[in-house]
Amino acid sequence: RQGFVPAAYVKKLDSGTGKELVLALYDYQEKSPREVTMKKGDILTLLNSTNKDWWKVEVN
Rank of each mutant, 00 (worst) to 15 (best):
P33N: 11
G3Q: 01
W55F: 06
L21P: 02
L44F: 10
L13G: 02
Y26C: 14
G3Y: 04
A7Y: 02
P33E: 12
I43R: 05
G16E: 13
K56A: 08
G3T: 02
V57T: 00
M38R: 00
Q29W: 11
Y26W: 09
V22L: 09
Q29Y: 15
E30R: 12
A7H: 03
K31R: 15
K52G: 09
I43H: 05
K12M: 10
K31L: 09
G41A: 03
Y26Q: 14
L13N: 02
R34T: 12
E35L: 05
L23K: 08
V59D: 06
R34L: 14
L13Q: 05
V10K: 00
L47Q: 03
G3W: 04
K12F: 08
S15I: 11
W55M: 03
Q2A: 11
L23D: 01
L25H: 03
Q2Y: 07
V57C: 02
A24M: 03
K19A: 11
L25D: 01
L23V: 14
S49M: 09
Y28F: 06
F4A: 02
P6Q: 02
R1T: 07
W55V: 05
F4T: 03
A24S: 05
L47H: 04
V22Y: 10
V59Y: 10
L47E: 02
V22H: 04
K52S: 12
E30I: 06
T17W: 12
W55P: 01
D42K: 02
K19T: 11
K56F: 15
Y9R: 07
E30Q: 13
Q29K: 14
K56V: 14
P33L: 08
Y28K: 00
T45F: 12
G18Q: 11
T45E: 10
W54E: 04
E20K: 12
W54Q: 02
K40P: 03
Y26T: 09
L46N: 01
K11L: 13
Q29N: 14
Y28I: 01
E35M: 05
T50D: 15
G18F: 11
D53S: 11
A24R: 00
V36Q: 03
G41F: 05
P6N: 03
F4D: 04
G16F: 12
N60M: 15
E58H: 05
V36K: 02
G41K: 01
P6K: 04
W54S: 02
L23M: 15
D42E: 10
L46T: 01
E35K: 04
P6D: 02
E58M: 10
K52Y: 07
T37E: 04
K31T: 12
I43K: 05
K52M: 11
E30P: 13
V57F: 00
G3V: 04
D53A: 11
D14T: 14
K52T: 11
L47N: 02
N48R: 06
V10P: 02
M38P: 00
A24Y: 01
